[in-house]
Amino acid sequence: MKIGCPTEIKPQEYRVGLTPNAVREAVAHGHQVMMQAGAGEGAGFTDATYEAAGARIAETAEEVFAEVDMIVKVKEPQAVERKMLREGQVLFTYLHLAPDPEQTKDLLASGCTAIAYETVTDARGGLPLLAPMSEVAGRLAPQSGAWALQKANGGSGVLMGGVPGVRPANVAIIGGGVVGAAAARVAVGMGANVTVLDRSVPRLSYLDDVFMGRLTTQYSDAAALEELIPRMDMVIGAVLIPGAAAPKLIRRNQLTQMKPGSVLVDVAIDQGGCFETSRPTTHAEPIFEIDGVVHYCVANMPGAVARTSTQALGNATMPFMLALADKGWKQACADDPHLLDGLNVHAGQLTYYAVGKALGIDVISPQMAIRA
């Protein structure tokens, strides 16, 4: 199979879909790999490194899209890239289709087969290709929120860890999954007063044990949020419904209950955000203010630490990428129901129920797509 990896063109996105190690493995399996020139530079990988691993370097994205059977990326294809996709071509990347009707429409029109990292599952019910980026985004969230809390950036001027005689910041993390646990680890380490909310009592029990009383756990419901919001200096939204639009947990009318200069960090912004007032931002302009509350809603947070993120993502995606290349997408998905869960689009039809529900589009089962 011919595998291609274009340079990411989303603003301030420095990750790359294939590491040199992944290229080396693919070539060892008998496949051809084409990298766009400069694709790995943002993550610290030179064209020469990819050539040494066995890749061919193409000057333009057009060359890559035109020649290969499978495109491997990091972020969802941008509008100009979607025009280059074709029928029968496999796209393997993050998609986040539920809040993105334009991307969904274009992918359906292209006739390609699109497999989304964020909906591939594992035997434990986890999301193995989302987890490494969730770890990164979770660890970045308190760090980014602490920057936004600084007075010069519009925040209230509260230091996360306080100082002797002055209280630390109060931080609420909504969602105790991979993102929430990673965010809690860093926020606790920074000395903040941390509360984690979740609707899974076993998960709260786990976090209570792991953190040994260094944070507070609380069952998440509307009353709990209403009680906490006025006291918080920072709220981190870390709620995920796989493949679906994120639930809106804090509404516009609740912002007036928050402290002036408090900060919302929306890690769920890729799925539409879990705060009603959230909208995607970039690393170049990461924050905005509504009703005195600073919002940090960067849609590709892990892109800020591209080297670490690329290596972590590459470790997770490589086995699936090789299975798709070795067997072809139909056989690979037939052999692995967890990879099949990643199938979102095939030959002009949507194959993921949560996306169809969010966008009002008819869906066929992925099993039907394999048999087609």
Rank of each mutant, 00 (worst) to 15 (best):
I9F: 00
M84N: 11
A79T: 13
P202C: 07
P6A: 12
V201D: 00
R124V: 06
P366E: 05
V33H: 07
A325M: 08
V179Y: 06
E118S: 05
Q254C: 12
T216I: 09
H29L: 11
P20G: 06
L127F: 13
G145H: 03
Y50N: 10
G161F: 01
T217F: 03
A152R: 14
L107P: 05
K151E: 12
A332N: 08
H29Y: 15
V72P: 05
G213Q: 06
A312R: 10
G125M: 07
V166W: 03
D270M: 08
E135I: 07
C112W: 00
M212Y: 02
P20S: 02
V72H: 05
T19H: 08
L85W: 04
V298P: 05
L127P: 08
Q12R: 14
A312Y: 11
A66F: 10
V267I: 15
A187E: 04
G273N: 03
A246W: 00
F320Q: 01
Q36P: 13
D221S: 01
L215V: 07
C112F: 11
R86G: 14
V136G: 04
M84R: 14
M234N: 05
L350P: 00
V235Q: 04
M321H: 03
V179C: 08
T317G: 09
D336Q: 08
A53N: 07
T113P: 05
Y206G: 00
N21K: 13
S110Q: 09
I370D: 00
S278M: 06
G176K: 04
L127C: 01
V33D: 01
A123V: 06
C5G: 04
G38D: 12
D100R: 04
R167V: 11
K327C: 10
E226G: 15
A223K: 13
R185I: 00
D270A: 10
A358S: 15
E13W: 08
T217P: 05
R56A: 12
G292W: 05
M70E: 04
T121V: 00
V298A: 08
T119P: 01
G180C: 02
R199P: 05
S205G: 10
A181H: 09
R139C: 02
Q32A: 15
K327Q: 15
Q218K: 15
V305W: 06
G348L: 14
N193G: 02
V186L: 09
A28D: 09
P230L: 11
L207R: 02
G191R: 03
L322I: 15
I174Y: 06
A172N: 06
P302R: 06
S365V: 07
A192L: 03
A52D: 12
V33I: 14
T46D: 14
D100Q: 09
N253M: 10
V178G: 00
D233C: 11
I236C: 03
K357P: 05
E41H: 15
E8C: 13
T310W: 03
